[in-house]
Structure formats: structure tokens, C-alpha cells
Design a protein around this nucleic acid. Structure first.
Lengths: 210, 210
DNA sequence: AGAAATTGAATGAATGGTCATTCACTAAGG
DNA sequence: CCTTAGTGAATGACCATTCATTCAATTTCT
């Protein structure tokens, strides 16, 4: 029971993406997905344990492939700064190319229940690890400041990409995400502050505040 | 019909926060919220149009008050850099102080349907405006680089704070959010890159890339 | 080869459980 | 005695999941 491959397996996953993106999570009934996949309701249960399992598989299948792509692409680049840019480009490209997938992962799947979110979290963790690796080698190679906290930087990077995409979707996918790569990359590397060493040292020296 | 004030009104909202935080959005039945508020199921419909309306009111009520606090606090500070720090401190303080509220706004309410999210978006927009104002005056006062795109910077700021809080919750609220204020603030202002003007100019000068 | 038996993928109507919402009723205050 | 706030059992809509049934393909038998 619950085959995890085959023509119908993929047809169902792709249909689920379309149905969820078009109708929203709460209106994505199993029967609607089945109809879109040109399959009977019951067939879905030959390929997935239940609806949750289908959603988790959907995410892991697509996100897993994406992470592999990012791993390969960043491995082909030397500078961690460029690796970061490459990751951002792929992140945006992937979602810009496939807005329905973007809607599903950025908006709709976040409405899922605890179990689904747990199944998703594991895969997401792998993406975080890719980001961590880039930051770590940036520090080791002396490209990034040695005192950046990897976890803090990772949350900034992921949080910014995520918010950028969410906001893009919420505004109807009108502009190009790819145009944002360089401004964001610059912001990550150089910050928004004017070069003013004195001002900066003032903060980092006193540290404690009420 | 649908009074939007009174003792019970607040009791219901507070009960909803507790029930949703403890049971998750999908197990927060109206009857459970009513019981927690020591009120009959039907009473909820004297104060709210329907369940959605209750959730939207919950968010707007609490978030609205928070935004007002931030507005007042940042108005008492001159430097946009410190205004930004103040906003971050309040953002983290508010959620650290009230983890149940944090769970509801960061995790559970994101599972709501389209209508709820729309109701929420409007209030969230006001928060974005506060962030925009800080960035804008930072640029005007020459504290921030004149070429930062306000929208890009805003998404970085909000996205980072949001991801930081979500990650804090997902890991069981074990560490202090407040400790993150300075490292993040530093990252926003100075970036993660080592001071290397030559490297930076390389990017900003050529611009286009395949 | 042809007939008969077996398999199991696929079907989709029926089921059962869950909840948001309603409304006929009660109680308290003026 | 009338009004208003509050009650909670009953209702009805919704939907994931099940399972008896179909049917095409494959295997076994004569």
C-alpha cells in the first residue's frame, strides 16, 4: 500500500499543486484534486496514506529536488559571496518560474496542521544547512566578518528571501523577483548603514543597555 | 448585533488566544473557546459576526495596540538607527513576554483562510509603514545609504524579525529573544561582509550579469 | 491455442464524524 | 411586563476516508 512512485503519483502531486494554488488550502478537497488528476477519489489512497501524507510528499518531493539543485550549483562556485548570490538567484528563479508552487509553499501549506508542518520542517532544515555552509565558509575564507553569528545570519537570509517572495505573491506576482537579487545581496554584505566606523564602534563597545 | 467592546468581548479574545496557542488552530473549536471564556457558544455570536471575525478582531486588537506602542516609543528617539533598535526591542519584548500570543500570530493564524488573512494584512500594512518611516528618515538624515531601496530594506527587516521569532517558537522559546537585538541590528547596519571597498565596488559598478 | 481463473489497480457512492451557526427559550433588570 | 443579554441543544453542511464492485491484464489449465 501507498506506492511512492509512478505516473499517477506524479499526476496527483501536480494536480494538488494546481488545485491548492487556485482554490486555497481550505478548498482543496481530495475529490477536487482527484478530478484534476483525472483519477478516482479512492485512487489517491493507493498512492498516499492520507491527505496529510499527500501534502507532505508534495513538499518534500519538490523542495528536495530544489535543494539538490542549489547544492550542485553552489558547489560550482568558489566565493561564498557568489555562492550566496547563486542561492538567492535559484530561490527566486524557482518560484518565479512556477508561481503556483510558490503560492502553495509560501502561503497555502503554512495553513496545514501540526503533522504536515513537522513533515515539512525536516526538509526545510536541509535548506538551512546549505545556507549555514555558505556562511561558515565565508567566515573561514575571511570574506565575511568573523564575529557574525551563523544562526542569526541564516535567519536574516532565509527570513528576507521568504518575506520577499511572500510579499511578491501577495502583490500579484507583478514585478520580477530576479531584479531583487543584487540589491538584497548588497544589503546582506554591506548593510544599510553609511560607512561610519566611529558610529559602529560606539555600539559594539558598550554592549549592555537597560 | 456584534458589539465590539465589553468585558465578555475581551474575555472571548483572551480565551481564544489561550485555546489556539494550546490546541492549535485546527483544534480551536468555537465551543472550546466559549468554555474557556466561561460563556455559552451562542454568546460568541453576540460579539462577533462569525469565527473568522473573531480571529480578525483578535489580531487587530492586539497588533493594533502594539503598533501604537512602537509609534510612541520610536517618536521619543532621534536617530533612525536607534529607532530601528527600539522597534526590534519592542517586537521581541512583546512576543517574549507573551509567548501564547506569539504562537497565535506567528504560527497558528497563518493557517487561517483567505478572508482572515486579508483582515490581518491591513493591520500588518500599518506596521510596515512604521518600518518604512524609520528607513526613510535614516536615508534623509544620511545615516543610511541613499541608494537602499526602502521596500527591499523593509522586507529584510520584517522578514528577519519574523523568521527569528518563528524559529524561536519552533525551538521551544528556550533562549532570550532580546539577546538577538544587537547582533541583528549590527547585521542590518553593517552587513556580514568584511570591510573591503574594492570588492563591493566591483559589484555595484558592473551591475549586469548573465 | 483457447478457455478459465486469478489478480489487483481503479472506481465512486456511501458513511460517519466534526463543527460552525442558529434559535427557541430563560433570567435579570428596570 | 417588557427588554436585553445570555444560553446550549439541535441542525445541517461539509468532506476525508472506506470498501464493495468493476474490468483489464496476466497466469494457469486443458
Amino acid at each position: 500500500m501507498a506506492k511512492r512512485t509512478g505516473e499517477k503519483y506524479e499526476a496527483i502531486i501536480d494536480a494538488a499543486i494546481r488545485v491548492i494554488a487556485e482554490n486555497g488550502y481550505h478548498n482543496a478537497q481530495v475529490s477536487k484534486i482527484a478530478r484534476e488528476a483525472k483519477v478516482a477519489d479512492g485512487t489517491i489512497y493507493l498512492y498516499f496514506e492520507n491527505k496529510d501524507d499527500m501534502l507532505i510528499s508534495l513538499f518534500n518531493e519538490k523542495m528536495g529536488a530544489f535543494i539538490e539543485t542549489v547544492r550542485e550549483a553552489t558547489a560550482r562556485v568558489d566565493s561564498p559571496s557568489d555562492q550566496l548570490r547563486e542561492l538567492m538567484r535559484l530561490h527566486f528563479a524557482q518560484l518565479e518560474e512556477n508561481p503556483k508552487m510558490a503560492i502553495v509553499t509560501q502561503i497555502e501549506l503554512r495553513q496545514s496542521n501540526r503533522k504536515v508542518r513537522q513533515g515539512i520542517a525536516e526538509t526545510l532544515k536541509k535548506y538551512m544547512d546549505v545556507i549555514d555552509d555558505i556562511i561558515r565558509s565565508g567566515i573561514e575564507q575571511g570574506i565575511f566578518r568573523p564575529d557574525v553569528d551563523i544562526r542569526v545570519a541564516r535567519r536574516m537570509i532565509f527570513g528576507t528571501l521568504d518575506e520577499t517572495v511572500t510579499s511578491w505573491i501577495m502583490n500579484g506576482c507583478k514585478y520580477s523577483l530576479m531584479d531583487q537579487v543584487d540589491p538584497i545581496h548588497r544589503l546582506f554584505l554591506d548593510g544599510m548603514g553609511k560607512e561610519a566606523p566611529l558610529q559602529r564602534d560606539a555600539h559594539s563597545e558598550k554592549e549592555g543597555n537597560a
